[in-house]
């Protein structure tokens, strides 16, 4: 358990700059998710922390001490790989005990700690099985136990739930949260799955193109992202071009205006989540007329997709009640963004 600091970390591989000065401060016991599209550098960041990728500039400190001079096996980190990397020639117990054997601990102490780790991940009756005879979820737990049993300073999880099917993923999410709460180890999760990031982490760091764009608590990040790119990346978002008029109102496409104070006159982008778009049968103040293009049922709710003025793509959530008598495809509806949930972004520095 320890604090992890990344200070302007740069990684250059084969002449390409992969990380452009990544800075991140993870408190002792905190769980931070690195979230971003593939190729954004999140895995490279993880590998730099683990010591598998050389850092060309910047500093990585664990518990206040630089680890850049240390090879991977001396960093005392617990890693869970996407493919779990369980040694197929060892039993579950041998896999979990591997790190302790490398540390030269005696047999009795290893057996005791392995038993504790197995109990933690609730696999006590699987100790003598070989990985080939475990299910995906069980392998994941063994990998987790193997990484935790060495009491690492930092636990690094690479796409921890990526290889599991939906149902198992939900169960493992709960399980991971429980284990993190029980163990309390500083944790970094790398994922491209926003649900995974938002549900597991205390804070989420959104990465784009080798840089951390924003680090925030999940709820804040979702409700009040600071940049248009993060808004767009997380969940579904309407990004509506608008103009702030001289008298301080927002002029929407189609001409409707919403009173709004504080913004400089000029072109802006309005960010609004679909669940904050009201669907009106008739024009109302601040509504945008749009033609329904598709309605997609998604279980808890349904999404309505529509085309506004000048081909603007809009979306809104339909409540289960509204879904009883949904608008027809091709029908004109009036979508009104809830002013309380509007976020203004400057036009275009994406």
């Amino acid at each position: 358990m320890a604090r992890l600091e990344l200070d302007r970390v740069e990684v250059t591989l084969g002449g390409n700059r992969i990380l452009h000065g990544v800075s991140l401060d993870v408190a002792d016991g905190e769980c931070v998710a690195l979230l971003g599209p593939s190729g954004c550098g999140k895995t490279t960041t993880l590998r730099a922390i683990a010591g598998f990728t050389p850092v060309s500039a910047g500093e990585i400190r664990i518990a206040g001490r630089s680890v850049l001079g240390l090879p991977p096996h001396k960093r005392n980190l617990g890693l869970v790989f996407q493919d779990y990397a369980l040694f197929p020639h060892m039993t579950v117990a041998q896999n979990i005990g591997y790190g302790l054997r490398m540390r030269g601990e005696d047999r009795a102490s290893i057996a005791k700690q392995v038993a504790e780790a197995l109990a933690l991940v609730r696999l006590s009756d699987m100790a003598e099985r070989y990985p080939a005879r475990l299910s995906g979820g069980q392998r994941q737990r063994v990998a987790l136990a193997r990484a935790l049993v060495i009491k690492p300073d930092i636990l690094l999880l690479d796409e921890p739930l990526g290889a599991l099917d939906r149902k198992l993923r939900d169960a493992m999410q709960v399980e991971l949260k429980r284990i993190h709460r029980e163990v309390g180890v500083t944790t970094i999760i790398v994922t491209h799955d926003q649900e995974e990031a938002l549900s597991l982490a205390d804070r989420v760091a959104v990465m784009f193109a080798g840089d951390i764009r924003e680090v925030e608590r999940p709820a804040t990040l979702y409700a009040r992202p600071k940049s248009r790119a993060v808004m767009d990346f997380l969940g579904e978002a309407n990004l509506i071009p608008a103009e702030v008029t001289a008298d301080g109102a927002l002029r929407l496409p189609g001409g409707a205006e919403i009173p709004h104070g504080g913004a400089k006159p000029g072109l802006v982008r309005l960010g609004i989540r679909p669940e904050h778009m009201a669907i009106l049968p008739a024009p109302g103040p601040g509504s945008i007329a749009a033609c329904v293009t598709e309605i997609v049922f998604k279980g808890a709710h349904a999404s309505l997709y529509a085309e506004g003025p000048a081909g603007l793509a809009l979306s809104a959530s339909l409540s289960p009640a509204a879904l009883e008598a949904p608008p027809a495809i091709g029908e004109t509806v009036h979508l009104r963004p809830d002013p309380a949930h509007l976020i203004l972004f400057e036009e275009d520095p994406a």
Binding site: A50, F52, H73, F87, H89
Partner: peptide
């Protein structure tokens, strides 16, 4: 990832080699 897993668990390069690569 097998070699890296061994290394992350504290095996030096040679032990990672003999403990994982050789049997695999």
């Amino acid at each position: 990832s097998f070699v890296e897993a061994a290394q992350s668990l504290g095996a030096g390069p040679w032990r990672a080699l003999f403990g994982t690569v050789l049997p695999l």
